[in-house]
Simulated scan of single mutants.
Amino acid sequence: MKILITGTAGFIGYHLTQKLLKRGDTVVGIDSINDYYDVNLKHARLQDAGIKVSDIVYNKPVVSTSYPNYTFVKLDITDKENLEQQFRDHKFDAVCNLAAQAGVRYSLTNPEVYIDSNIKGFLNILECCRHFSIDHLVYASSSSVYGLNKKMPFSEHEIADHPVSLYAASKKANEMMAHTYSHLFNLRTTGLRFFTVYGPWGRPDMALFIFTKAILEGKPIQVFNNGNMLRDFTYVDDIVNGIIHTIDQPAERNYLWNAQNPDPATSSAPFRVFNIGRGAPVNLLDFVTEIEKQVNKKAIKTLMPMQDGDVAETCADVSNLDEMLGYKPEVSVPTGVERFIAWYKTYYNIQPEPVLVH
């Protein structure tokens, strides 16, 4: 297939792009390469996929030196005119929209950028998919849409209408916007609610990255809600496998959908929403212990109260994705943490501490 991936310089976008290229798909990747976090890390991901960073100019295609079937374009999805041109030029079979302003805490102080990227930008994606007859749009939602919900595990079949951050609200809005386009224009859409993704090439604002960096540097880490947090940590390869399962099997109408008892996960339109997680939450302090084991160094913990916009527990019910598309997470947390730390030490050239011989 010919697939557009937005956010291709991002954490999940980088891994998804590599996997699709290796199986032989043609990928056009776009990314604004904004400075929400270290631009050098984004450039390094692109370089690892054969994109020469010195050749990157806004809205100009750069063909990978490693994969002739990969073209990268620096482009912001809020730039409707140039985004439309990409759709016009390439005639994509499918679109995977991973471009978004991420982060719950950042949304408390910078709300406008979430409206620009996650609402206006997503509207541009929907409009392009509509006008250029895209067969299937897959887009990133988030476990954060469950907000105040307490019934565990979180199920797509339960209503999720009480977000506790603007980031979560923007992701819920994406799902509602997608449903509207599925209903009005027969656009097949699939929303994927990611649960705490981690792994090599991960984002520096995520817990595993923050904790690993601080522990290795002998600095204290902040553990929120006094450590009473449960997170459904999901390794990036499992997330990517779920995305690819979804791309390959486009959304269909649910002809059994009942308007008297509506299922939020499906519709009479070609729309659906899936959780992608492990379905096995881990206590945050146990997660820290796993990092300590892998780096052979104790963390200096500072216990903190719960932060605004955060939730105490997440756990994905992934039975829907398993039953419909055959998704099964495979990577355990110890294995995933080990792989991340191995990458981190290599990427930042951290040498093992010398062993003193007496």
Score class of each variant (00 low, 15 high):
Phe195Gly: 00
Ala102Cys: 06
Lys42Ser: 09
Ile3Leu: 13
Cys315Arg: 02
Leu41Gln: 14
Val311Gly: 07
Thr314Lys: 08
Val53Gln: 13
Gly202Asn: 05
Gly218Cys: 09
Asn40Asp: 08
Ile300Lys: 03
Phe271Leu: 02
Lys172Pro: 14
Ala140Trp: 02
Pro281Met: 08
Val318Tyr: 01
Asn118Asp: 14
Ser117Asp: 12
Phe340Gly: 01
Leu98Pro: 00
Asn226Gln: 07
Lys293Tyr: 11
Gly218Val: 07
Val311Asn: 06
Gly191Ile: 04
Val53Thr: 05
Val39Ala: 04
Gly242Thr: 01
Leu192Arg: 02
Ile341Val: 10
Tyr347Gly: 06
Tyr167Ala: 01
Pro61Trp: 14
Leu148Val: 05
Asn34Asp: 06
Asp308Arg: 11
Val104Pro: 04
Ala178Cys: 00
Ile51Val: 15
Glu217Lys: 09
Ala100Ile: 11
Ser319Gly: 11
Met324Gly: 07
Phe209Pro: 08
Leu321Met: 11
Gly10Val: 11
Ala280Pro: 08
Val318Cys: 00
Pro334Phe: 05
Thr65Met: 09
Lys120Cys: 10
Asn228Arg: 02
Asp55His: 04
Leu166His: 02
Arg88Ile: 10
Leu187Asp: 00
Lys151Glu: 10
Phe211Leu: 01
Met324Lys: 09
Cys315Phe: 06
Ile210Cys: 09
Ser155Gln: 14
His43Trp: 09
Phe340Trp: 10
Leu192Gln: 07
Asp308Ser: 07
Pro281Leu: 08
Asp248Met: 14
Ala251Met: 06
